[in-house]
Design a protein around this nucleic acid. Structure first.
Lengths: 296, 296
DNA sequence: TATTAATGTGAGTTTTAATCACAGCTATGA
DNA sequence: TCATAGCTGTGATTAAAACTCACATTAATA
């Protein structure tokens, strides 16, 4: 076979030809314009011909460049199409089953999962949300995301992020004559509890507040219900800020004070040790870690 | 455009599919089998499918892999063909003119130049061999290779290798009753001089030989003629072993003793300073340096 | 049973590519 | 007409990717 030009540079050339601009191609490829400029030069040196005319504002393809770009684009399209055909082949599509808590599913996973699907169209996704500990084999779970201390024998354990607790409430509670200003003001509002009084008790101790009764308020067994109550202004809930990211960003919930209780539990991605090398499981766990890191 | 797999890995896949072997593909691509193994895995993880069946002796394409390989190969062929068409386009082909001494041309450059041409088919090559110092502009020289001390003002100078001198002769001179055994035996054979007695004089001084008259022997003004004389067994010549590589390898000439005289001159690639950035000149000089280094 | 001819892989190194920050160019518009 | 905005080019540095090495593993072959 005849010698091929540097392939990554060729892809940069294709993008530049499509945009008629190095800068636009660069942002298309998520690199800087300098990287594209170097790669185009590589191709031009390889071919011994200019492919672009350099103009003061942008670039323009030479005749040769235009012809070449057409061939290159067609070749890339064929490759992309063939790759895509394999990746999205519906028959015998592999299903990746994720088990997690309902809150984590709604508050963290859902808003990100389309990104995984975009990068890995070859896998079907199934989400099984339960607070129970799962039997991987019987329930056909590939990856579970669980809070704990990471000591699960027989399982491959990957830490995602620490679990911290911070009070959150509807923004309306920060306004008016009874507005929450300091932690002591919690005595005047309803506490929302997730299953047990324990969490608020620990937080109040940590914050050094003694005028607030941790047994006051409502207890709900479904955290999603609890957060809906908080959004409606029914009281103040405790939450890991990471799992209510969207609510915080949209302003549905706010953090009245920045006293963050660190805990000794963390979110972990786990799977049976013997499956840790399965490509789809590895892909998912690596992706979860990357997402958790990106969130910081 | 749909997402493309890692392109260099794709090339490795193509080679592996062609050879039906990772090891063979590796040597084809001048890398180790480990590199190919990783790249194939990359592609397989990207696609979410095995492309090869792993057998104990070698690998075999899966049905999917076979289909995919066909598409990929065709796409690469299109790119290679289009690239080649531009690179070898005869009209307006750029000519690269190299000026060097006749000896260097015959003894070093000639045997390597096809490698340059293979990598850079887009340039036509012209060789101008003369011992004169050249006028780059008037004689349209792009790159000159010259011996000296590297102090040529106005020129961009790149050192290639040191010039050393060592005696060489036909292997026949090492046999029979009058065989050359030690440097002192040079008194019994003819010395072959390249233009001046100076070189032998320096070498004999360096070697500490005082029974040999450096003014003995034949003086030839063309080193190629001198080496022909040496090959025919007419005497012993002094030479830089680098420029008679092929004669040494073929056994036409041998080094009777390993006393190497280092000199203060070296071989340099030079070009006018203002042309040092010309792609074809840069390509040639970088290639000359790489060849000189490879020879060591 | 030892050998051979392959692929797979963890750790470390080398090579390659990308970034950053600044330079240079010129059409545009104040 | 002169500063500005919008590009591309590049030297030095940093970051990432690829490769190598050495060893492991496997099963056909001698």
């Amino acid at each position: 076979m005849k010698r091929l030009p540097p392939l990554n540079a060729l892809r940069a050339f294709e993008a530049a030809a499509r945009h008629k601009s190095f800068t636009a191609a660069a942002s298309d490829l998520f690199v800087t314009h300098g990287a594209v400029s170097r790669q185009i030069r590589q191709i031009e040196e390889f071919l011994g011909r200019r492919l672009f005319e350099r103009l003061p504002r942008g670039v323009e393809l030479t005749d040769e460049g235009r012809e070449y770009a057409a061939v290159v684009r067609r070749a890339f399209e064929q490759m992309a199409e063939a790759s895509d055909a394999i990746r999205t082949r519906a028959d015998e599509k592999q299903i990746l089953t994720i088990s997690t808590t309902p809150r984590f599913a709604v508050g963290w996973l859902m808003s990100r999962l389309h990104l995984f699907q975009r990068d890995f169209p070859q896998y079907g996704i199934r989400i099984s949300s339960t607070t129970r500990l799962v039997n991987f084999e019987r329930e056909r779970i590939d990856v579970a995301i669980r809070y704990g201390r990471g000591n699960w024998p027989g399982l491959s354990v990957t830490r995602l992020f620490d679990h911290e607790e911070v009070p959150v409430c509807a923004p309306a509670l920060l306004e008016g004559p009874n507005a929450l200003r300091s932690p002591e003001d919690l005595a005047r509002v309803r506490l929302l509890h997730d299953g047990s009084y324990q969490y608020w008790k620990s937080w109040l101790e940590f914050a050094g507040i003694d005028n607030v009764d941790p047994h006051e308020g409502w207890v709900m067994d479904d955290p999603n219900v609890m957060f809906q109550a908080a959004i409606q202004g029914q009281g103040v809930a405790l939450s890991n800020p990471r799992t209510i990211e969207t609510e915080l960003r949209d302003g549905k919930l706010v953090r009245p004070f920045d006293i963050v209780l660190a805990t000794d539990v963390a979110a972990y991605a786990v799977c049976p040790e013997q499956n840790a090398d399965d490509p789809k499981i590895r892909a998912m766990i690596e992706w979860l870690v990357a997402q958790a890191e990106a969130q910081e």
